[in-house]
């Protein structure tokens, strides 16, 4: 399990990285924390001709609270997010501890995880739930991509050739928004068998807005409009939870792997969604 041969460079600036990517086209691939890419290299499942290590580019390591959002550079490590609880980004803080183990989070990056678009990964689900914005850097400048159009299938994103993910903008949610993140993995730190993320606005003890997401059930995380619709205007009592869970189980199209059949994944999503909604109920 040794990587195949490749060329390597470690640019210090985004422009430098973009220049190399442009020059080498499909052959080149950016390397952030490497916690997914290096295992793929070791398995020889990835065979880039050129690895562009973006780990030394300081402008990608920014983490800033702005007026109504957080700007998180692509190579900010998950550990750094874990250490600073980001005010207004509760869902992100809830989700990060589920990513791998401490050793993985020490190297794994926010942008790397989102760009990698692993169907079972936590951060894409968070991004989708809170409508985060992915900002791509290309030779023609920057381009914002909404979460709903960023994920383009399993391990696929909608970055164009030669672009890299520069940073992610997580909106700061109002204090009336309650969040919950639940995932079921066979062991702590394993990829989820299924998971749900919830950001629910409560006004006058009823749900005024609901953003619910299921992940690890198919190509990409998906919002649960049926379940969302079922709880808006409701007080989240036991019957509401049942209705939402049934709606979620019905509206997803889970896939099959050795850890669970579609039927089993529906059951887990239903159970996890109930628990998540219980947690955010007024």
């Amino acid at each position: 399990m040794k990587p195949p041969p490749f060329l390597y460079c470690r640019p210090r600036a985004v422009d430098e990285a973009l220049a190399v990517l442009a020059e080498h086209g499909d052959e080149a691939r950016p390397l952030a924390g490497g916690q997914s890419l290096v295992p793929m290299l070791n398995h020889r499942l990835a065979r880039p001709g050129v690895l562009v290590d973006i780990g030394a580019i300081t402008e990608l390591q920014r983490m800033e609270r702005r007026a109504s959002d957080w700007l998180i550079g692509a190579t900010v490590t998950q550990r750094r997010v874990e250490r600073h609880s980001l005010e207004g980004c509760e869902l992100l803080s809830l989700a990060v501890p589920f990513i791998g183990h401490r050793q993985i989070r020490a190297r794994g990056t926010v942008g790397g995880s989102i760009a990698h678009a692993d169907p079972a990964a936590e951060l894409p689900a968070v991004a989708l739930t809170v409508d985060a914005t992915m900002v791509a850097a290309g030779r023609d400048g920057q381009r914002a991509i909404g979460a709903s159009s960023f994920f383009a299938g399993p391990y696929m994103n909608s970055l164009a050739d030669g672009e890299i993910l520069s940073h992610v903008i997580f909106p700061v949610l109002p204090s009336t928004t309650r969040c919950s993140f639940k995932e079921f993995a066979r062991r702590k730190g394993d990829f989820a068998v299924a998971g749900v993320a919830a950001a629910v606005d409560i006004t006058d003890r009823v749900v005024s807005k609901a953003r619910l997401t299921a992940f690890a059930i198919g190509s990409n995380p998906v919002r649960l409009p049926g379940a969302e619709g079922a709880i808006v205007g409701r007080s989240l009592d036991a019957a509401d939870l049942d209705t939402a869970a049934e709606a979620a189980a019905a509206e997803i199209e889970p896939w099959d792997d050795i850890h669970g059949s579609p039927r089993y994944r529906r059951q887990i999503v239903a159970a996890l969604l109930q628990r998540a909604l219980q947690e955010v109920a007024p």
Binding site: P5, L7, Y8, P11, A13, E16, V20, L51, V52
Partner: peptide, 8 residues
């Protein structure tokens, strides 16, 4: 940008 040359 400074030109960065990938190396083996």
């Amino acid at each position: 940008a400074r030109r960065v040359e990938p190396v083996a």
